[in-house]
């Protein structure tokens, strides 16, 4: 666009995220036309929305703020030397400012050397999600296949099998994975949302659209979308509901981490809920695929 750059405001960013929840990733023109968002995003084009979403995804995808800053600095130094790079480089200053705004996820990509428990957990989460996504097995992948994938792609990690067992249990308990017949697949919606039947239907639709439209690194973008979904849900609650929600989330996290047995029970409940959600998602997918008209009406 020829229009001069305008820094994205927090309000605009929030409208973009809410628009993606409502209409899905890639529906930029639809979001711009929606009266709920057009009042805030009236200065933005569809490409502006796509670009902003991509920047948010890139940072959620693995660049910590420190790494991003370092990259930005290096890019500046490279500009005078290689004309080619100037085509690809995003202006540095806005990126640096956006880093502060966006509060990127601190996800480490240092796979071979995993320093501490926290970073190890984060990395293993990503490895598991990537394995299931890449294997693309119908009905999900079992632990053996996931372990083999991780070892093939990223070299053997010490104690991988036992770490993997604990992590799979945790992810299932927290609702990120669904376990059926010893196979794991990525859950279509966060477990907490399943506890509210009416709202889970609405969020499920939004999430399904997001899933269907994503054609790049699906796992990473979903991670970000997942968090946005949770945040959006919390924002729409009354203070009492938000407090209860937070308390439940904390209780569930503690149970999953501290007690394997209780985590197993949570996993069973999450699995049953997720099965119902998956059935609904499948129905939604079939319904969406059946529509051949270019004009889609989102109810």
């Amino acid at each position: 666009m020829g229009a001069p750059k305008q820094k994205w405001t927090a309000e605009e960013e929030q409208a973009l995220k809410a628009g993606v929840v409502k209409h899905g990733v890639g529906k930029w023109r639809t979001i711009l036309k929606d009266p709920e968002f057009s009042g805030v995003l009236y200065l933005r084009s569809n490409v502006d929305l796509k670009d902003k979403w991509r920047n948010l995804s890139v940072m959620a995808n693995g660049w910590s703020s420190r790494e991003k800053s370092r990259l930005s600095v290096r890019r500046v130094h490279q500009v005078p030397r290689q004309d080619e790079n100037s085509m690809a480089i995003t202006p540095v200053v806005p990126s640096d400012e956006e880093i502060v705004d966006v509060k990127p996820l601190q996800v480490s990509r240092d796979i071979v050397h995993i320093p501490g428990p926290k970073r190890s957990n984060l990395s293993l989460d990503k490895l598991i999600m990537e394995a299931i996504t890449s294997l693309k097995e119908n009905g999900g992948s079992n632990k053996t296949a996931i372990a083999a994938f991780i070892e093939d792609q990223y070299w053997a990690l010490p104690g991988l099998k036992s770490m993997l067992s604990a992590k799979l249990k945790f992810l299932t308990a927290s609702g990120k994975l669904i376990k059926v017949n010893r196979k794991y697949r990525i859950a279509p919606i966060a477990a907490y949302s399943d506890r509210r039947r009416n709202s889970s239907m609405l969020y499920l639709k939004g999430r399904q659209k997001a899933s269907m439209k994503i054609d790049r690194d699906e796992t990473n973008i979903l991670t970000r979308s997942q968090i946005d979904l949770e945040l959006e849900k919390i924002r729409s609650m009354t203070p009492q509901e938000a407090a209860a929600f937070a308390a439940r989330a904390v209780a569930e996290a503690e149970a999953a981490i501290a007690e394997a047995e209780e985590a197993a029970k949570e996993a069973e409940a999450a699995e049953a809920d997720a099965e119902a959600a998956q059935a609904f998602a499948d129905a939604t997918t079939k319904s969406a695929k059946g529509r051949k008209s270019p004009k889609r009406i989102h109810t």
Partner: peptide
Amino acid sequence: AMMTTPSPAIVQCATSLYDGTIGSFKS
């Protein structure tokens, strides 16, 4: 190359970075 050079940088290139490039051309 990932098989002969065990490096996180090459892994990153082969996975997320080129997934992004391929996705962009497709899009």
